[in-house]
Amino acid sequence: PTPPYLKWAESLHSLLDDQDGTHLFRTFLKQEDCADLLDFWFACSGFRKLEASGGNEEKKLKLAKAIYRKYILDNNSIVSRQIKAATKSFIRDCVVRVHIEPAMLDQAQTEIQAMLEENTYPVFLKSDLYLEYT
């Protein structure tokens, strides 16, 4: 069977679908001071999961606010710099108007994902960290 680390090189999704792959990629991003990009990507997925599971509205609002404050509010943060102004104001509006919906972070997640796919992921595949692992 194909070893997991070769699958990681197939696509960003195959990497992020594997626990060890995700861990190694996060270690790499941490070295580059941009682990927040990956944390944000997972936070968006977690938010959607929580939304889909129904239940506690207060918790969803609290989480949406937490994500907004930690990653988006500060325009100079690494995540915020990669997200379009229109996308940021859409999320801000959702939080301010307490209009929480499952897809409210989807566009921002897509923009961060595109950035990971075009930049950090290819660099990771050429990094010493990945090469040593393989």
Binding site: L16, D17, D18, Q19, G21, T22, D39, F42, A43, C44, S45, G46, F47, K49, L50, K59, K62, L63, K65, A66, I67, R69, K70
Partner: peptide, 20 residues
């Protein structure tokens, strides 16, 4: 603030892949 951080961590962990 602490509980907000905990909530965020819990959310991130919930989306991360589990051991296969």
């Amino acid at each position: 603030i602490d509980s907000e951080d905990d909530l965020l961590q819990e959310c991130i962990s919930s989306a991360m892949p589990k051991k296969k």
